[in-house]
């Protein structure tokens, strides 16, 4: 099991920025061993060959990377890269700023 370290600087990326989108796509690309340029917000999990187990592995990666907790009902809505970015923005925006 790869031990993703708790990332301190991830919160520095503004969730609304294009940089955040690139970061999320980069994480997906790394996990699925895909070329980031082939992934767009329109890419679906199905197209990228992400099955249900890969999906929860990705969620775990996002949780560790951004130090957030993604509720099950939000996870269930994630079927494309765009939906992932949207959900992460929602969770990150709602989160109380950490000290």
């Amino acid at each position: 099991m790869s031990e993703t370290p708790q990332s301190g600087d991830a919160t520095a990326v503004d969730p609304a920025s294009p940089e955040f989108e690139r970061k999320v796509i980069g994480l997906i690309a790394k996990k699925k061993k895909l070329e980031p340029s082939t992934i767009t917000p329109e890419s679906t999990f199905q197209e990228m060959g992400i099955d249900s187990l890969d999906g929860i592995d990705l969620v775990f990666t996002f949780e560790d990377e951004f130090n957030i907790s993604i509720p099950d009902q939000v996870v269930q809505k994630m079927k494309s890269v765009g939906q992932v970015i949207e959900a992460l923005r929602e969770v990150l925006t709602k989160r109380a700023p950490s000290a």
Binding site: M1, E3, L53, D57, F60, S69
Partner: peptide, 22 residues
């Protein structure tokens, strides 16, 4: 070992989703 270290020592609430299949 990794699972318990994260939980008890590092106080990380999340377990890796592959923990059961592994």
């Amino acid at each position: 070992d990794v699972l318990y270290r994260r939980y008890y020592a590092e106080k990380i609430a999340r377990a890796h989703p592959f923990s059961i299949p592994r």
